[in-house]
Simulated scan of single mutants.
Amino acid sequence: MSIDPTIGRPLQSVLKPQRIRAALVRQVGGPFIVEDLSLSPPGRGEIMVRLHGTGICHTDLVCRDGFPVPLPIVLGHEGAGTVVALGDGVESLQVGDPVVMSFGSCGQCPNCARHQPAYCHSMVPINFGGQRWPDGGTALQQGDRPVHGHFFDQSSFATYAIGQARSAVKVDPDLPLHLLGPLACSMQTGAGAVMRSLRLQRDESFAVFGGGAVGLSAVMMARHLEASHIVVVEPVAARRALALELGATAAIDPRSTGDVVTALREATGGGVYRALDTTGLPQVIEQAFQALAPNGLLGLLGVSAPDAQLPVRIMDLVLRGAGVKAILEGDSDPQTFIPQLLALYRSGRFPFDRLVRTYPFEAINEAARAAASGEVIKPVLLFGA
């Protein structure tokens, strides 16, 4: 790959497709299959990134197991690495910059203009469509056959990835780049849900249902915001213990607690002012809502079954002045929020690395199994130099 020595930019006319290793999903519910592919040079507004590490998120597993995405596809959307090539028109980044690759957005719709890219009007086709947006096609090929990619504007289950420059966040070079990928989705989602979506204030009570990467990120943010009570409802004992270490004031095992709603009210002195569900399960969402104090707010960000209904009566909402808010990506603008999280990490107030266990890229199926079983909170795949 040639680089213009005078400006450090690639010479687009001489760039050729990059040979990469990537994990493909070829059938619904099938394994990740690591194969050789080629990746076309970045187009206008795009960058090519050599991956150092990428997290495995629940959304990757949901899409592997049937959430509608075109097949075959390369998934992965929590990538971090080094910029190795720039497409035409990219001015915000340089070759050699370390970056976290986050979700895609159009940059032009009213919500993007308001710095609310998580609610981009084209969020679904950009992030789940399996092709470049808006022009179509794919940068991934196997021989003469196209392979779907551009998942969340990256498809980072690969040694190299293409994404829009506006979706990538430049980070300081002294940070552990191989561990930063989960900030792109699960960790900014949990932390952002507390800080930006629910707007938790000092001395307010908070409960989170689910102690995975999203839930524990929410716990760390609630502690930073000095919530009066921070309660985690989680069946896995090790996760409850870690939640208490990270700042939770109480941890409830829903399997051994006869009445979770009563337990929450007792733990918070009458009810929870802000609650967050990460499970997507209607029966859990009902418990979270019933535990709300008057004028409380429940955030929803779990992936529910397509036909699931909200288990809340309108009169219950009205009589308590309670609210329910659906949340995408923690209402985050990655360009501003990821640097905020990294500043908290440097100060010791957001130790997200405690949630991580690393695996070599070739062990992706082992890592995915550990994530699905709950054995590991946040698997991160590492790529060789």
Rank of each mutant, 00 (worst) to 15 (best):
S197P: 02
G66T: 03
V124I: 10
G55W: 12
G55F: 11
V356I: 15
L264S: 07
C185F: 08
F337V: 00
Y160T: 03
A322D: 14
R50C: 05
F337A: 03
C57Q: 07
A22C: 10
F383M: 15
L382E: 13
G43L: 06
N365M: 11
L71D: 09
P10Y: 05
V312H: 09
A238M: 11
T82R: 15
Q340E: 12
R313G: 11
L179C: 10
D4M: 06
R349M: 02
L310V: 09
L140V: 09
L276H: 09
V62R: 08
A139K: 07
L292D: 04
F352H: 03
A118K: 06
S13K: 14
V303F: 01
D174E: 14
T279R: 00
G53N: 08
L292K: 14
D331L: 03
K378H: 10
A293K: 13
F383Y: 14
G211C: 08
A222C: 01
G149R: 06
Y273I: 06
R313S: 14
H150W: 15
L175G: 10
G181A: 14
P134D: 11
R320S: 12
I377P: 07
A158R: 07
A238F: 13
P146S: 14
L61W: 07
K16H: 06
P70G: 10
R114E: 14
L381W: 07
F206K: 01
L301N: 09
R19A: 10
L37D: 13
D277S: 04
S217M: 00
T278Y: 10
Q290G: 05
R357I: 05
I252S: 13
G190Q: 05
V284K: 06
K378S: 08
T336M: 02
A372H: 12
G271H: 11
A343W: 02
